[in-house]
């Protein structure tokens, strides 16, 4: 009998204890969610305002909206400056992505897999553009490109953008390399693979997430870059960000807002597609 009461006791206690904890956890979750919501609101507010304004019938860039219209979107294809800017930006960003991967991946490979003199210094040098203000870099490039006749050329912008995006590619590739087992490469070499075959069939597939992440970041950074493009090629080859800057200087309607919304969607699409297809998150 006494055994029975003992056995029955703990579950009863647990039952009474459970409702005491539940509401407290609920309040905690609510406060946490509210804080997260506010944080996101704060971060995304500028974007949201741009989205709202792009549909507003206000004559000038202003808030709050006075009515709904799709005119700003409809007008975009007719804006020759935007369309040519977009073309220049896409060409630049594509070329930069390809070239920076061709340069950056082997550089990262050398840093990760070989031992040589001055390795630490070279690594610091490769990553240094992240720490230099891009306006300083841009000024230097203009002065350097003058005598080389590279100002206002694709070559000039692309070189400038490679300098800015190179550290990203080296970084993401190094991260992937650090997590791959070098014995896979050794096994492939022992099985008869020469250096190039081993790189192509083993190393590259293994570090693919890092390479893709680096490529995506390089594309977006180059596509978005304004300072170097402005300094190096404002008059000759104005990229989309340069055209947007110019447009805002001269006129104040919401066409820029509509363009911005499309660019946001474009960037999101790139990231989402790459994530879905290749698993970007693994590398970041």
């Amino acid at each position: 009998m006494s055994q029975n009461t003992l056995a029955a006791h703990p579950p009863a206690a647990a039952r009474t204890a459970a409702p005491v904890f539940k509401p407290r956890r609920k309040t905690g979750t609510f406060v946490f969610n509210a804080l997260v919501f506010l944080l996101y609101l704060f971060l995304l507010a500028p974007l949201l305002i741009v989205v709202v304004i792009s549909f507003a019938s206000n004559q000038y860039l202003s808030f709050p909206p006075e009515g709904f219209t799709l005119d700003w979107y409809a007008a975009l294809p007719g804006q020759e400056t935007f369309m040519s800017g977009l073309r220049i930006s896409l060409i630049t960003a594509s070329a930069v992505t390809v070239l920076v991967l061709i340069l950056g991946v082997p550089a990262a490979l050398a840093l990760a897999r070989f031992r040589f003199k001055g390795k630490a210094a070279i690594q610091a040098f490769f990553l240094s553009p992240l720490m230099i203000p891009s306006i300083v870099l841009a000024l230097g490039l203009v002065l350097l490109f003058g005598p080389l006749k590279l100002n206002n050329t694709y070559a000039g912008i692309i070189i400038g953008h490679i300098a800015v995006t190179f550290p990203f590619v080296v970084r993401t590739t190094l991260m992937s390399l650090a997590t791959t087992d070098t014995s896979c490469e050794e096994a492939a070499r022992i099985l008869g693979g020469d250096s190039w075959t081993v790189f192509r069939r083993i190393t590259l597939p293994l570090i693919r997430p890092g390479v893709i992440a680096g490529g995506v970041i390089a594309f977006i950074v180059s596509f978005d870059e304004a300072v170097i493009s402005l300094f190096v090629a404002e008059s000759g080859l104005p990229t989309l960000p340069v055209q947007v800057l110019r447009y805002v200087e001269n006129s104040a309607d919401a066409a820029v807002a509509a363009l911005s919304v499309l660019l946001i969607l474009f960037s999101m699409a790139v990231v989402v597609i790459v994530e879905r297809v290749m698993g970007l998150r693994k590398a970041l």
Binding site: S183, L191, G193
Partner: peptide
């Protein structure tokens, strides 16, 4: 060079190609 020695090796981590 390694790839011309015609050896077979089994590593401690097995080193199978994960992809």
């Amino acid at each position: 060079p390694v790839h011309k020695r015609g050896m077979g090796m089994v590593f401690q981590s097995y080193a199978l190609f994960p992809h």
